[in-house]
Write a protein that binds this DNA or RNA. Structure first.
Lengths: 207, 207
DNA sequence: TCTGGATGCCGATCTTGATTTCCACGTGGT
DNA sequence: ACCACGTGGAAATCAAGATCGGCATCCAGA
């Protein structure tokens, strides 16, 4: 009556530790992106990776740790992408264009990693909140420096605007992805980056 | 050994159904806003309302229904606030100012209702997602009409920009609330609304 | 004032679903 | 052939949502 052991063909082949870990991360991303943290069960992730649950726990001490590992990795990637976009030119207008395009490309990636970064349902966890806040601060500050370079605004106010523009990029890109896919990525990101640039270039200190 | 019935002084006084319901909603908002949907336990809400759990379930069939009721109510309120801000003038520049200010005021309210609307951790629930999407669409379309009135942009593109500006308002206001409270509400919202207005006014169709 | 019934309230418990762990088994290298 | 280690089925554990049956309170009508 007991269940037979899984035949060899269905067992997961033995893998070196790093490869297995990478595969698990990939499966976890897929499930988390599709269902969110709370909607994802460890069973689902194990099944997606075609592995049993204990294997999961040999690589990550808990579901939360698994999630954090993923978040860290993709936040680091996005940070690097935007940094490189910022360094790709010295013309501020072109900088805005490049960063906006980078954001749109990140969101359009079909691994859906943006769901972790921009639509996490674990924002109330202090660790997650702190990582997201660090990322957002860094990004907003980079924009704020561009603004301060083009205007005479003090840093406090430039940062507020930086946050606002970051929000504009993120929200508009998410909408574009969901609803407005008849617009080409370039067209949409150029449109929004023009909106942003018109807003900030030679921003007057007083009304 | 059995626990004594709670003395009369500790029992919650009998309330007419509607008042009790209102009180429960208020307690629920407090807990949900502080901890998010998943971080909030029905026990917490009951305790905050100084009531036992069955009372909660006599008014709301489930935790999710309670949350949806709250969300509906505050989404409706915010919708009405922005509609009224839009109708408060016919000058588009003033419209942007008024709406931005309304957003900042909504976020500054100390009932923290904005945590439900802008930081919900239940976005993966279809009912929640649909309600939020309806709100966002309505808001973005209102902005898109303003944009279309001031430019020659087609509605598809105006809507993308509308979403972007909505995101700018929301994200910048959340940042202002958390970190930048040395700036006055008026100063901050005016600053961001100027950024928005400079971006959209007489937006050129081509670069 | 007294009484019956309806309504509101509570302690205690049930139930479910998901994370985490235990222990035996197979597999591949030496 | 052996043994160390990766693997999986099944079960322990636990938190939290939901419920059950009885008690208290208020009000209408005699």
């Amino acid at each position: 009556m007991s269940t037979e052991p899984r035949p060899a063909s269905m067992r997961s082949p033995r893998l070196p530790r790093d490869e297995r870990r990478a595969q698990l991360l990939s499966a976890a991303l897929e499930v988390f992106a599709a269902n969110g943290y709370h909607g994802a069960a460890m069973d689902d992730i194990a099944e997606t990776a075609q592995v049993s649950k204990p294997v999961l726990y040999q690589h990550f001490p808990s579901k939360r740790d698994l999630y954090l590992a993923l978040l860290d990795s993709h936040l680091a990637a996005l940070t690097e992408l935007t940094r490189s976009a910022l360094d790709s030119t010295t013309d501020n207008r072109e900088r805005v264009r490049a960063v906006m395009r980078t954001y749109y490309e990140f969101i359009a990636k079909d691994d859906k990693a943006h769901r972790l970064v921009f639509e996490s349902d674990l924002v109330n966890d202090p660790e997650v909140a702190s990582r997201l806040e660090t990322f957002n601060r860094g990004f907003a500050e980079a924009i704020a420096r561009v603004i301060a370079a083009d205007t005479r605004l003090p840093m406090v106010e430039a940062q507020l605007l930086g946050r606002g523009l970051a929000g504009m990029a993120q929200v508009s890109a998410r909408y574009w992805l969901e609803a407005s896919h008849d617009l080409d990525l370039d067209v949409a990101s150029d449109l929004v980056s023009r909106l942003a640039w018109r807003g900030i270039s030679r921003f007057p200190k007083e009304a």
